[in-house]
Write a protein that binds this DNA or RNA. Sequence first.
RNA 1: GGGCUCGUAGCUCAGUUGGUUAGAGCGUUGCAUUGACAUUGCAAAGGUCAGAAGUUCGACUCUUCUCGGGCCCACCA
Length: 700
Amino acid sequence: MYYNARLQLLLKKINPSRISVMQKDGEIYKSWEEKGYFKPELHTNGNPYSIILPPPNANAPLHFGHAMYTVEDILIRYHRLLGDKTLWLPGADHAGFETQFVFEKKLLEKGKSRFDYDRETLYKMIWDFAAENRPVMENQLKRLGFSLDWSRSKFTLEEDIIKIVYKTFKKLYEDGLVYRAEKLVNYCTYDGTSFSDLEVIYEEKNSPLYYIKYGPLTLATTRPETKFGDTAVAVNPRDKRYKQYIGKEIEIETVFGKAKLKVIADDMVDPEFGTGVVKITPAHDFNDFEAGQRHNLPSVQVIGLDGKMNEKAGKLKGLYVKQARKAIVEEMQKKGLVEKIDESYINRIGVCYKCKNPIEPLPLEQWFIKMEPLAKYAIKAVKEGKLKIYPKNFEKLYFQFLENIRDWNISRQIVWGIRIPAWQNKKTREWKVTEGENPGDDYIQDNDTFDTWFSSGQWPYASLAATNSLEFYPTSVMETGYDILRWWVARMMMLGIYMTGKPPFKDILLHGLVNDPLGKKMSKSKGNVIDPIEIVEQYGADTVRFALVYGNATGNDQALSYTKLEAAKKFINKLRNIARFVVEMKPKTSSKEAAQRIEDIKVMKNLEKVTKDVTDALERYDFNFALNMLYEFIWHYFADVYIEQSKKRREEAQPYLEHILKTMLILLHPFMPFITEELYLQLPNHLESIMLEKWPKVKA
RNA sequence: GGGCUCGUAGCUCAGUUGGUUAGAGCGUUGCAUUGACAUUGCAAAGGUCAGAAGUUCGACUCUUCUCGGGCCCACCA
């Protein structure tokens, strides 16, 4: 029966399980690496071309965003084939707070906490933890086929990197761009560290609005527990209702008894909100802090770093903020000081981006970087066209961030990181910044470590310098997810220009996010995280790479698509069969002289066109278009038309078939490195590897 | 409140600087195929390109507005 015959045939051919393909990919990768193909020295005389891999966190396995680095591998392999002296430099980030956070969770499982260890022990433990996990991440990058020069791999906590980071800090300090000050900072009382503005996320939360009597006035607040820190009451200067009180002191009744409070006028007060009267608590609110400075108000801290009320809160001392709020409201209600409560009020609360607990604005002495002078140059570089951002619309985001930038708090109260090389004199309390050395017995080092992004912000320069590869600076392109444009790219621009006088890259290329198959953002809490390596094991690396590039415009988010994975699988099958037809089913003899028939002339013309189109598309980072051209040409022209035609005149066409197949494999290699190598090695007269081939020349 | 982005075939998405019959993958329908093809080939159906107005000889593409998703930023007590 026909059907059974088909089935038999099918079963006979059904391939090698996925595992053996994986093995094959692994072997191919290994041989490439062993032969040194990933090193720039492969083309010593070529033009330098370089990309710095955004260093993944050392402690964590890859997520699907990392698989998007396929785009970088495409560029790297393309330039290698062009004959450029090409470097793709890998690395690993210590990811300070993130890693410590994960590690603390692990400690918690064992019934321990960070407080059970001294600094050195904790650091050592996290070091081992990261060291243990780093190879996992690196192997995953290899499985995706990424042609990184592993001999140059760096880790952000290595001595030579730290030295460079210290140098930068000292230079900033000497140039007056780093200062130490007590300011209100974003502090997470659960994780015990401060953050920069970027690490705070805002969530809409129901926060009851309490209308409280302050002597003759009534004000509305969501934070009654901070009233012990009030040093004024503010109204709008144009608010007629309260004109009589401005500049005067009012007597208010508190849970402690009577007290006096100044009434100030400030434009920050919106007369429409609440009663138009606001309490000013400079020590616990960013707006109030500024108002306090404008009006010379004292600052009274009532909440400690532990998140508990301090002695200024009287008998509420020792209570956590939430408990204290409840207690004080009850107390005031007893005294009849609460006029009403708007229970349904919703406002935006800053929470820790990691543990999601409320961020407490607290006064703390920290190191800050003055950003404006640095931002100026980063803005200028892009405005003057020294480098371009792709896709272009992200330029706006870039400018928006840099033009409104505020000073950067780089102190973190964690141990996992680069300890700040600042030393304080025990007697004079003066600070000395060094390049790491202890200035003397009278000094003790700051306990804090740098914000991770301070060191990763120097990564292009630092990693190249530490690997003796500065000839590759500035790098050719910085390719990364748009979600870290502000956190990372903008900071690399600022610090890179500051330290070297040049932007650290010639182009910025941003890719979109990979969402779950339904288009929702992958997140642990939603439980929809898909492991890229699992998909690689299921479909193969080439398939995954194809699926991520095909049908997706540069910079756009995409949903992980199984139908695209299936399509990619079929395409690979097509390639295999084309190769089988051209190579295995070769005619015994073939013409020496190419017989230029009309279809041959046409196919060569089309080949030339597709080569040019693909090359142009790669030059403008239009990967989808390039891959589309190849797909169309290979399947619907080369296979469907030319090969079909050639069956009648096989001997004549054979030289063309081989030539076109080889050219296709080369053009496709950046996108699908494994299958192209595998098939290439089946061609007659092949080199040792497709990686040694040359990108076909495009006629101008 | 400000900004960005998307709304194109049943589904997921492309559409390069505005130019003739708007494309792909998957799906659907018909026919063919012991074929180099784990199938594939040929053909077909299917879109008022969210809606409205404008610029233009001509708009999916540019402008404005409306509706509806998504994301980001901002100090609302």
